[in-house]
Design a protein around this nucleic acid. Structure first.
Lengths: 236, 236
DNA sequence: CGTCATATTGACTTTAGTCAATAGAAGTGG
DNA sequence: CCACTTCTATTGACTAAAGTCAATATGACG
């Protein structure tokens, strides 16, 4: 489980055996969450950060008028709220989008790890930085693109990330989000999401049924979304 | 100049005299940029990060179809691209919104500082985390709010940040952004920005003339924007 | 079988975008 | 200092994208 995280952090810089060992020996508490369950409440002060071991999660904000905006998605191997290490209270909530297995690392343990292995701080900063780049990409897409392209972009991003996590089978993967959740992620209404999905289906760019998303020709979807995966920093 | 940064980082945690000294003795190169000048090109690999000493800057992304999205603003004391320390190449550009004085710190110097003062890494992580929280707030506002509220929210955020930097005079401050730039920041058209500004003016919530923004009653604008400054982490 | 969540559809409204013209304002070179 | 260009702001008329409301289907599940 931490192995996934190590593999991810090594996209930034190779780790020494000691550093890998320190990460491996982080004390983690594993727990299961049902789809829809809140993992971290908005505005709470966390003493631990969560890593996704299995399933999908999202970060979201509830605004004062009750509307919800999903601001990011996590796939297995992702830190859900590494920034909660330093950001207290936290400005958003976290919930499970599917049945999910979550590993929690106490901030105290992170602190001690960084004392012994200060260079790991840069790896964690990199993880936070990629996270920030992803949020910026979402912001840019939301500001500049049509609903159709926003959805296409979201599916492309997920496809690449899930693929990197080794979870693509037969051009597709388990995809738990409802149209309402897609709407909350893209800042759209459910009705408009529904119609935009139909357009994507008609173009045969996606197959979305039984909570499974298949993208027969990812290149076609990439073209439609004008998607450039550089911001994900998946590989050198 | 670095004093401003130190004051900001101490919002997270007090620094030891040695840590303050280390920050103070960071080698910085000062340079001036004219309004509109690009400070950091999109996709470039930077060997230094920039701090705003005077003036305003913005981060922005140019999408493949040429449209521009401004994804954040910086006021004096802000790191413009601290994440460029670990994120290479950088996913966005940086430009001056006004005449601006910029201090650049080599990444090598940051690296050496962190080796000697590893606890400073957490302060830098905090700076990155607040930055991330701000981007999330923009995303949520863009996804959930009307043009009128988006602009009101942006003005509130700027007012609080400029105020914290000690640059508010007579309820206002020098505000260099054109309506086109506001449109790029909010994901709107210039025409719609123009009309929304007129609505804000009619409500007497803002006075915007001669490149100066005055907010006679900040509380009224906060109410109109449903603005909550918590995400800025300005004070305990 | 009935209930609840989710998805789909139609009809209509609203917000925001586009295009185009005009008006100011600001700088620039002569 | 003035004529000229170039930004920037404003306005009107029209279009298009997306939201709202409401009804209906579909499907999972106890």
């Amino acid at each position: 489980m931490i192995g996934r995280l190590i593999r991810k952090l090594e996209r930034f810089a190779p780790l020494s055996p000691e550093e890998r060992g320190a990460l491996q020996s982080l004390p983690v508490k594993l727990s299961e969450f049902a789809r829809g369950e809140v993992i971290v409440p908005q505005g709470s002060v966390q003493q631990e950060s969560a890593i996704v071991a299995a399933g999908f999660t999202c970060r979201f904000k509830i605004l004062s008028d009750g509307t919800r905006q999903i601001v990011s998605l996590q796939v297995p191997g992702d830190f859900v709220d590494l920034h909660a290490f330093v950001l207290k209270p936290i400005d958003h909530a976290v919930a499970a989008l599917s049945q999910a297995r979550i590993a929690r690392v106490p901030h105290l343990a992170l602190e001690q790890m960084l004392e012994r292995h200060p260079r790991l701080a840069r790896s964690l900063m990199w993880d936070m930085a990629v996270d920030g780049a992803t949020t910026r990409e979402w912001l840019a897409i939301m500001g500049c693109r049509s609903a159709y392209q926003q959805l296409a972009h979201l599916f492309c991003e997920l496809y690449f990330r899930v693929d990197w996590a080794g979870l693509i089978e037969d051009h597709g993967f388990e995809f738990p989000m409802t149209q309402e959740e897609l709407a909350d992620a893209c800042g759209l209404s459910t009705v408009h999401v529904n119609r935009s999905l139909q357009a994507l289906r008609k173009e045969r760019l996606i197959v979305l049924e039984n909570r499974r998303l298949t993208i027969p020709q990812i290149n076609d979807l990439v073209t439609a979304a004008e998607f450039d995966p550089a911001y994900l920093h998946l590989l050198e």
